[in-house]
Design a protein around this nucleic acid. Structure first.
Lengths: 207, 207
DNA sequence: TAATTTTCCGAATTGAATCCGAACAAGCGT
DNA sequence: ACGCTTGTTCGGATTCAATTCGGAAAATTA
């Protein structure tokens, strides 16, 4: 029965715990991250963890949620710029931004995603999907001719999921077959060509 | 210091333990899968687990390895058939086979893969990559004109990683935006169109 | 069969996660 | 300022799962 923090002091404690979770997890890995480590790094007693979190797993969940909402917050302001770009450039930009985001703070997020991310990913990824879907929707409205491309929902689904996991996997891969830029370029031109092919097909039919 | 099994009896025990791991994990989830459960399901004493496995994590690792090698073994014999198909049909076939494979035995594998990251077992994907790369290499040799398509390594990388994770994620998604077939069709036509677009581009240059 | 090696076991140990009640701080009406 | 209620912190005590260990049982060898 964890409580909700009512005062500023306790909100700061909760924050410190989540932050300490990122530090501990990225430093020691999942096996050696104990509640005492987290408490020590956060500068609070072990007992305090259980004031606001059901159990250790709940701390990881909170971290996951914060990570996703931070990612979404990072992408949201890019929307206006992205929708003005050619599709392939937009994808390259997005992938590169995601990469720097994951690598900031000495790769803290990246290390954590590797471990903690998938506990329940459908639940936590939601805000990120929302933002990305929004980007795509605005893109379509900005370029109305692309609305006639078929299989847009399926391509969106694959693009988003494939993109997210390909980036994470690539950054975790000690010996990737292709460079990051090559991969980004590959995904960008795959989707770019798909749309071009669909549009020219439409042109043929209309003609 | 876990030992290597020397007799048939002990090899059967090791097998039973790994098998019990799959059953326990898919039935109770990662948090409630204890060494005692695994031992009980396997029909051995708890102590026996540690005769052949360093620790609980090592059991999960063995499961991961078995899962990947089973997957690779499932795909390998499909190679000759796949390389004769049009690319989009080959992709659809592969994705559907992967799906049924994951869903066999009441989704035992699927559930385990979902928990995979939660339990922190690194998927030892290497053997699977090897088989898939082999399929692609033979495909290219069977259809030499496709060798001139650019960015083949990058597209391969994205296709494999995107494909694996898109399938797993889709099958775990309680409310997917698109049907499985739509997704498979999307990936298939995306790659199909990419290759077609690249080839027609080459044609223009040559002409 | 006796000696040796391999396998199996489960009670005892260990250590991390979790609980809990006492002590400390903040808000609040008087 | 003062007492009262509510929010917050803490760390020793408790609980429970992972792991160990020493010896019994089974298989193998000679």
């Amino acid at each position: 029965m964890p409580r909700k923090p009512k005062q500023d002091r306790s909100r700061a404690t909760v924050d410190a715990i989540v932050e300490a979770g990122f530090i501990a997890l990225s430093q020691r890995g999942p096996a050696d991250t104990t509640t005492r480590h987290i408490a020590e790094i956060a500068g609070v007693g072990v007992g305090s963890l259980y004031e606001y979190f059901e159990n250790k797993q709940a701390i990881f969940n909170a971290m996951s949620q914060r990570f996703i909402s931070d990612t979404a917050a990072m992408i949201k302001p890019l929307t206006p710029t992205l929708v003005q770009m050619p599709i392939d450039e937009a994808i390259r930009t997005l992938l590169n931004q995601f990469r720097s985001f994951l690598e900031q703070d000495d790769g803290r997020y990246l290390k954590c995603v590797r471990y903690a991310m998938a506990v329940d990913f459908e639940l936590h990824l939601d805000p990120l999907y929302k933002v990305l879907n929004n980007v795509i929707m605005r893109y379509l409205m900005e370029h109305p001719e692309t609305l006639r491309v078929s299989r847009i929902p399926a391509i969106t689904y694959i693009g988003i999921n494939g993109g997210i996991f390909a980036v994470i996997r690539h950054l975790s891969d000690p010996d990737p077959m292709v460079s990051f830029d090559e991969m980004a370029d590959g995904l960008a031109s795959m989707i770019g060509h798909y749309i071009a092919a669909e549009l020219s097909l439409l042109g043929d039919v209309v003609r």
